[in-house]
Design a protein around this nucleic acid. Structure first.
Lengths: 201, 201
DNA sequence: ACCGTTCTGCACCGACCGGTACTGAACTAA
DNA sequence: TTAGTTCAGTACCGGTCGGTGCAGAACGGT
């Protein structure tokens, strides 16, 4: 599990599993979970359906792996931002990271966790719920960081960490939609600046 | 076209076309364009596929009609808000309206135009683009309203109407995602208040 | 009565969906 | 060499997708 070293026996895999997962992630990113067909996925991965099923299990598990990769890669800003010294710096780093990730020069616009399955048919409810949890978790971690900021005196005593976290998350989601709408990084950064004007001293 | 009076000849339609469209709209709202199958749509509408095709043309045209109805009904707040006397009142009415519409007591959470087709497969690009235009139009109208507010002295001379409009739209989109995430109207209203703290005097 | 028109319901279309059985090929261990 | 194991490619599965052909029912006009 997660061992990049190949098992010793049997015919060796002829494709790079990391690269295949990266490409699958980009297809899910652009198309969403249901919009990404196995044909398009395996086509982008450069492998056959059989190989995909042998390596990843099924479409849903492939998506889960792709989501993991997304969290560790393009969406790592959400975790890294928490390490900024002040609450304001955290908020700014979070939103600037969102802008950066949702407007990659050569990749799909928007956020995988938002486009993935905002609305979905009944069969893929599992994936829908997975993404709801993913997004809510990010909010909770932000809230905890802001609570720490209040305790440290970095935020005013009367500031509401949960409220602030939800506000920043809302802006992050909105940025993802605006990026999908075609706005570029410069315009989105302006929006971020506007949003933080009223940030508590 | 749009005549609610029935044509005089031929067998009369046995269902209420307005009610059928309303129900189709709710299915699209909950499932998105691609996630809503004809089976579920016609099931909710209480008619057969044949009747749907005779009355609306095809799935895409049904969606277009449903989107029209959405704009005139649940999303009318976006237009009504423009009539508020001050820019701040416009922004507040817009966001409160978004909260209200995305958290209806008996209906689907979120915003039809956001969940409809944020990400989509290639075949439904037309619908995707339609929704992008719809969302951008809303932003442009808001921008024009704020520009008027600057001219009227309601907003400071140095305020940037486009930037403010984009900020409000971003909040609106974010609210839609948060509603789909399970947040209720009370929590979303708090977020709106937080967002408007820094609103230019 | 009869015709033209419009709506309904059923059965059906080809295409594509996610997923798999099966045949070999490519490898290690003995 | 042989057996055991794992991967690749083809061809296929049942099911569902959006969409239709067709027969008949329900109407107005004549």
């Amino acid at each position: 599990m997660g061992d990049s070293r190949r098992a010793v026996m049997g015919r060796p895999r002829e494709f790079d599993i990391d690269q295949a997962l990266e490409r699958a992630m980009r297809v899910f990113w652009a198309r969403g979970y249901e919009g990404a067909s196995l044909t398009e996925l395996t086509g982008a991965m450069g492998i056959t359906k059989t190989s995909m099923y042998a390596a990843f299990g099924n479409k849903e598990q492939l998506f889960r792996k792709a989501l993991q990769r997304y969290g560790a890669g393009p969406a790592a800003y959400a975790t890294l931002a928490l390490e900024e010294p002040t609450a304001r710096a955290v908020a700014l780093a979070f939103l600037r990271g969102a802008v950066c990730t949702t407007t990659p020069p050569g990749g799909p616009s928007g956020c995988l966790t938002v486009q993935g399955a905002l609305a979905s048919s009944e069969e893929s409810r599992a994936v829908h719920d997975l993404l709801v949890d993913w997004r809510n978790d990010a909010g909770v971690r932000l809230e905890e960081r802001f609570r720490r900021a209040v305790n440290e005196g970095d935020l005013p005593r009367n500031a509401d960490p949960r409220r602030l976290a939800r506000f920043i998350m809302t802006m992050g989601f909105g940025i993802a939609v605006q990026a999908a709408n075609g706005l570029g990084p410069a315009e989105l950064d302006e929006i971020v600046d506007t949003a933080l004007i009223g940030w508590p001293a």
